[in-house]
């Protein structure tokens, strides 16, 4: 026997590895503890969903089809309709996306392509500073600074420039859909910037250098190499930002101004309104009995809509991250 066969092993050596070793007594405890925590948290999640849905049943029964057919949100009576709130949520989110998507993606591209490498981290963490500002601080900023500026400068200027045509018509008070959209746009912009930047940085160097070597300008590289490759990642970022915007509560509760009953719908830019999440925060203080359970209907709607959007956004981002790895 001159050479030793390294591939054979004595039969008394147990091959160690996850799943192959029979769990010893102490590892059975380890597995048990991990199972226990996973089941504990899972049960809480299920109970959370169950409790919200079961408590909303009296609300659905109380309002019935009025919930989706009438137009008044009179909390505490049986004349409740979710339409003003649903429309307020959709309109404020869409306007916020209109502001945040171009600026968010644009600044992510600017950070990667225009800022010197040494300063990139600094600039992007400054932008991401906006993401750690608590939403109540946004509420204070919106209600005490922006509202005043809009009602004294911004909205009169818009109204006179466009001669009061739609959507710049009617009375203005600063508070309202327009203020909410601006505040919301500022809140979701850093989400889009941060995720887009990660996705853009992950584009393989060879693709970019290949394009440069073929004579492409920086603008062409961005349009023809970066953006097509990052499409799914940026989509995921926008979807996550949409979820955040739909569920934003405290900042909007303080700047949207509330639903008025003579014009409940957000049919113009200066109208006041409310959203599903903000209305829960505003009305929950007067939560009473079966009338109050209509708030749970709003909560269930939020849970379903925002939950599925967040889940979709996460899956899109995860799939796009797998693309280059």
């Amino acid at each position: 026997m001159s050479s030793v066969d390294i591939h054979s092993q004595p039969s008394n050596v147990v091959t160690a590895g996850r799943g192959r070793t029979p769990p010893t007594s102490s590892d059975r405890w380890y597995q048990l503890v991990l199972w226990a925590i996973a089941i504990f948290v899972g049960v809480i999640v299920l109970y959370f969903v169950y409790l919200l849905i079961s408590d909303s049943i009296p609300g659905w029964q109380l309002a019935g089809w009025d919930f989706f057919t009438t137009s008044r949100w009179l909390f505490g009576t049986s004349a409740v309709s979710a339409w003003p709130l649903i429309l307020g949520t959709l309109v404020s989110t869409m306007l916020a996306l209109l502001l945040a998507v171009p600026i968010g993606i644009g600044s992510a591209l600017a950070i990667v392509f225009l800022i010197p490498r040494r300063l990139q981290l600094l600039v992007s963490s400054l932008i991401e500073l906006l993401a750690v500002v608590p939403s109540i601080v946004y509420g204070v900023w919106g209600a005490l600074v922006l509202a005043h500026w809009l009602s004294s400068t911004g909205q009169p200027w818009l109204q006179s420039t466009f001669h009061g045509s739609w959507p710049f018509n009617g009375a203005y008070v600063g508070y309202g859909i327009m203020l909410g959209a601006v505040v919301l746009g500022v809140m979701i912009m850093p989400i889009i910037t941060a995720i887009s930047r990660d996705v853009i940085v992950a584009v393989p160097r060879e693709l970019i250098e290949g394009a440069y070597s073929l004579g492409a300008t920086r603008g062409q590289v961005i349009r023809k190499v970066i953006l097509p490759n990052c499409k799914s990642g940026i989509t995921g970022a926008i979807v996550l930002a949409t979820g955040r915007a739909l569920g934003e509560t405290i900042a909007l509760a303080t700047v949207l101004g509330g639903v008025t009953n003579f014009s409940p719908f957000p049919d113009r830019l200066f109208a006041t309104g409310s959203t599903l999440a903000a209305e829960i925060a505003i009305d929950f203080g007067q939560f009473t009995g079966s009338q109050g359970s209509t708030l749970f209907c709003l909560a269930v709607m939020l849970l379903v809509i925002v939950g599925s959007i967040t889940y979709a956004g996460r899956s899109i981002i995860r799939r796009s991250q797998r693309q280059f790895s």
Partner: peptide
């Protein structure tokens, strides 16, 4: 990390979704 089975995958997806849920729902709960 260590128990990769169907249940932990479901709970993990739930946790990822909880990050994005409106926090007011937890207050209501």
């Amino acid at each position: 990390f260590d128990l990769r089975n169907k249940w932990t995958l479901i709970v993990r997806a739930a946790m990822e979704t909880f990050i994005g849920l409106p926090s007011i729902l937890f207050g209501v709960f």
